[in-house]
Design a protein around this nucleic acid. Sequence first.
DNA 1: GGTTGCGACGTTTTT
DNA 2: CGTCGCAACC
Length: 785
Amino acid sequence: MYLDELNKEQREAVLYNQGPLLILAGAGSGKTRTIIYRVAHLIKQGVSPYEILVMTFTNKAANEMKDRVKSILDVKYPGMWIGTFHSICLRILQQESIHIGYRTPFTIYSTSNQETVIRRAIKDLNLDQNKFKPKMFTTAINQAKNNLDSYDKYLDSKNPYDRTIGEVYQYYQKELKKNNAMDFGDLIMNTVILLRENKKVLERYQDKFKHILIDEYQDTNKAQYRLVNMLTQRNKNICVVGDDDQSIYGWRGADLSNILDFENDFRDVKIIRLEQNYRSTENILKAANSVIHNNSYRKSKELWTDKGEGTRVHLYEANDEESEAYFVLKTIKELNITKGFEWKDIAILYRTHAQSRPIEDAFLYHNLPYKIYGGTRFYDRKEIQDILSYANLIVNPHDNTRLQRIINVPRRGIGERTFERLSNYANENGISYYEAIEETGKIETLSSTYKNKIRDFRALIEDLEEFERNNSVDEVINQIAELSGYKDDLSELKKKNNVEAETRLENIAELVNVASTFAARNPDAGLKEFLSSIALETDVDSYEEEDESVTLMTLHAAKGLEFRVVFIVGLEEGLFPSLKFDNNNEEDEMEEERRLCYVGMTRAEDELYLTYAKSRRQYGEMKYNMPSRFISEIPEECLDQINIMDKAGAVTKEYVKVVESNNPYTVGDKVEHKKLGIGVILEINEDIIKVDFLQSGTRMLATEFAPLRLIKDTEIVDSIRNVTPEPLAREKEQEDNGYSIGDVVEHDHFGIGEVKSLDGEFITIDFNKAGSKMLSIAFTKLRKV
DNA sequence: GGTTGCGACGTTTTT
DNA sequence: CGTCGCAACC
């Protein structure tokens, strides 16, 4: 019986099924499990799946829930509405499109499309481009939509700056309407407007959804709050799950008061607290609890665990960001060797993306596999946006923004002047650009050469439209890349050894993959459906737990995940907590930084490392930051201060020496190799050691990959057993490793260099920039030049 | 129509 | 220190 798999509070939350319910679920307290079982239980009790609505913030969460509900109930199609706020709203808007004055299918504008429209607005409204940056407006408009504010409110403002925002907002909104497009904010706001202005529609949905569940309720903004509130007014079976201590998106419009005031919004609210943490050890939990206790704007809650004390939270002071990176690297290697943690068990979390760089450098140099999440998103990449613009144009040719984007990409001789003549004609006649293209003959300002070029473009789009009717989504995407000349263009560049072009081709291939997966899963869906599905998709959705690599990500991106070992780096005043506070709500923002720290700390299951650097390069300038206040908020008895003086501090440029000083081995140490048995270290050269093995003679080994462990003298007697040294696979390469002295080679990290000497699988190269290095061929990516 | 160089800028970003 | 956008060049 599935109820037996729950603790007392979780069970209570599953069984309580009449009226408003607030589940305050601390980090690692089995939140998702509770929601899923609650849904399953409702259905087992006879509630129809069609009467249940579950809203989440990420596709990942939605998919996970869908899958788990399906497996508990053992059905193929769950029937209930489970999705992100945005996808649920999209679904409603598409069904009710007659009420909202949009044609179906409307398109969805991503952040980059948004910016394109804003740029045009700034130009057309003759605003000073030095004073007004597009980002200011996108931020303001998104925020306005989160708060359900229309542009009228801004236009009526006494503040001239707000009036300018109003003007741009108005222009932008009209432009979107003209293009039959909505941005992310519109999806929510327009749904609220739809329900507010159509009583019949509202009542239909209120009737339909007898039970509504909201995940991560602390992250809802005002618009989302209104939406939920309207939908639930009839049945009041609203269950919200969240943790006020994990609200970290305030700057994006999330309104913490939604969860804090929930009990005042409804009558007879039942509150259940899930406070048993199944993730972290006592020390980690105690440290995290102590930090969050310094916040005043929160509900009382105290997490506990029965996992046992565990090790203390490790604290390390580095000299600078490079030695911080090397501490992380070295510690990870040690954890792997001594405690058997795998790469995928480990995550490194930081406040800003820029901090990943020194860590990447260190990992790259030492071939420690890692994966970075965030940064430029896959769907934001230029080539992906370009291809998708073509695809969108096939579905909706009147999308001016996207047409403008690709009409000359790749170059086909339709330059700025030509386009201007075309767009002028369109504007004068009040038609879309594509309609103007259909009337090219009538545009008198164009010479026949350019008319023909435009006709060619039109023919291209028509060919693609035709192709789309008879082929699968992935074939269409591929055809776009082919017919548009995009592929040829990149292939040409690739021939010239352009690495970037190669990546772009790979990205396009990946997009075709995504499309074919979609086509396989949704056999009845077409291009239209594919486009709206990926418009709401993000990179986080592709996070793979199985990956054999260390995870690098921002603290924000880590929410909802867990790792056996967590490093939080850069715990310095000014960096974390970040130093950019508004004067008005300084305290609010500090509390949000603290919650972010809490989120980071509670990701850790077994080991938590906190590091800070005494000095750090920020924006090219040397900064000397104080250790973060969050460190001093941790009780000393939970901390294990690592008091290694950083010998390497003075020579940070010389990675080599840092590693040497951090190398766990010294000459004379006895080691045990998984295959080669016991040996003694004869020499140490960077991270390569020469070991004399009892049974197989001397060998060079790369410390970070050789399956080695240090052994004490007393162990030796026990350990000498029959080790039959198997020749390593690499040994065969020794005969001819493909390189000879004098070869010029290129290394991903060090650049160009010349081969100086060869010693088995080891190769010494004199790099033009990085100097002389000894590297293991098996683990080094080298190219002959 | 495409390249180059200079200056401005610089959190976090579930959709 | 990097990146990116734009203006001035070829």
